[in-house]
């Protein structure tokens, strides 16, 4: 009887753990919502900092980094449980962040202060601070990590920065209000979500020129690979749709509706399930990609933006 009592006591005292969580950043109220990845039930909601916008895992997946733009810090979470592990302070205004494929550089865009900061990825020491014209938004690397490409949302441009010299290599006009950017799996083209031009501008980055426009929908915004090294999803935030792009033919495959301003996405490792933050409705929607039907609607916080789960599809 006494043994049973202690087992019961321990079971109540032990922290609740979940096999896997989905981490959702709520930019509007500075919180994180944790959702059980498999039951789709909200687990926990807690304060993380001022204006967390984007997140990404460390190259070895040992931690998930949340960039708090207004708090000027990076918060490290356990990528499986979502618990806060540590905080690196005095990282100036990090908005969108990314590690170069060779794991040498950590790049942080300061959208509000028109600047790109390059840090050494091993210790987060600042290497270069590069002023740019207006609203550096999203970023992408080429495969040999020699260049990082930055969309400039306010000045309607694309900037390429040489990571060896940490100097701007070139800047070209790229369409009205560019946002998301991703490299195609063959390392040939950059796809740019151009919100004001309602689609994707395809850039040959070696030639520094636009070679094609793919119409997708109003407010074409952010990308996520399907994980098959062939297709990439783009959220059309104004049209309330998501489009699937064939990266080999550089053409639109099909489009399906997702209400409430679809923004950031995450795809399951079997490429069958899509999670997406619906920015204007305080919701995350889960979509079955085999039939494009919404299977779950999960309430989260104000202005949900970045989201992540560790059992995601490959990033190409």
């Amino acid at each position: 009887m006494r043994k049973l009592f202690f087992i019961l006591l321990l079971s109540f005292c032990a922290p609740l753990t979940y096999a896997e969580v989905t981490v959702v950043l709520n930019s509007g109220d500075g919180t994180i919502s944790l959702v059980d990845r498999h039951t789709y039930q909200p687990i926990k909601h807690f304060y993380v900092g001022k204006e967390p916008h984007h997140l990404m895992s460390l190259p070895d997946n040992s931690a998930l980094i949340v960039a708090d733009a207004v708090s000027n810090d990076l918060v490290f979470l356990n990528p499986t449980t979502g618990e806060i592990e540590k905080r690196i302070a005095r990282i100036s205004d990090p908005y969108q962040i990314g590690f170069s494929p060779d794991k040498k550089w950590f790049v942080a865009n300061s959208l509000r202060l028109d600047r790109v900061d390059i840090y050494r990825a091993t210790d987060f020491s600042l290497v270069a601070r590069i002023p740019l014209s207006s609203m550096p938004s999203h970023l992408a690397f080429n495969q040999d990590s020699s260049m990082v490409f930055i969309t400039l949302q306010g000045s309607h441009q694309l900037a390429a920065i040489d990571l060896k010299t940490q100097k701007v290599a070139w800047i070209i006009p790229v369409g009205n209000t560019p946002a998301g950017i991703i490299m195609t799996p063959d390392n040939q083209h950059l796809l740019i979500g151009v919100m004001g031009d309602n689609g994707i501008n395809v850039v040959d980055w070696r030639q520094a020129r636009i070679i094609k426009h793919i119409a997708t929908g109003v407010g074409a915004h952010n990308f996520m690979p399907l994980g098959d090294q062939h297709h990439i999803l783009i959220s059309n935030r104004g049209a309330d749709t998501i489009s699937l792009i064939d990266t080999q033919t550089l053409s639109l495959t099909h489009t399906f509706p997702v209400p409430g301003g679809p923004d950031d996405m995450e795809v399951s490792e079997d490429s069958k399930e899509l999670w997406v933050t619906c920015r204007w409705l305080r919701e995350v929607r889960v979509i079955n990609l085999t039939n494009d039907q919404v299977t779950h609607v999960i309430p989260v916080g104000r202005s949900p933006h970045g989201l992540f789960f560790i059992s995601h599809a490959g990033r190409q």
């Binding site: 949302q153 209000t177 104004g238």
Partner: peptide, 19 residues
């Protein structure tokens, strides 16, 4: 608000407008 901002070419500021 969002269609108005699109019409005015101010898509860069739609998140501020939403707030």
């Amino acid at each position: 608000v969002e269609p108005l901002f699109q019409w005015l070419g101010l898509q860069a500021y739609v998140e501020n407008a939403y707030d």
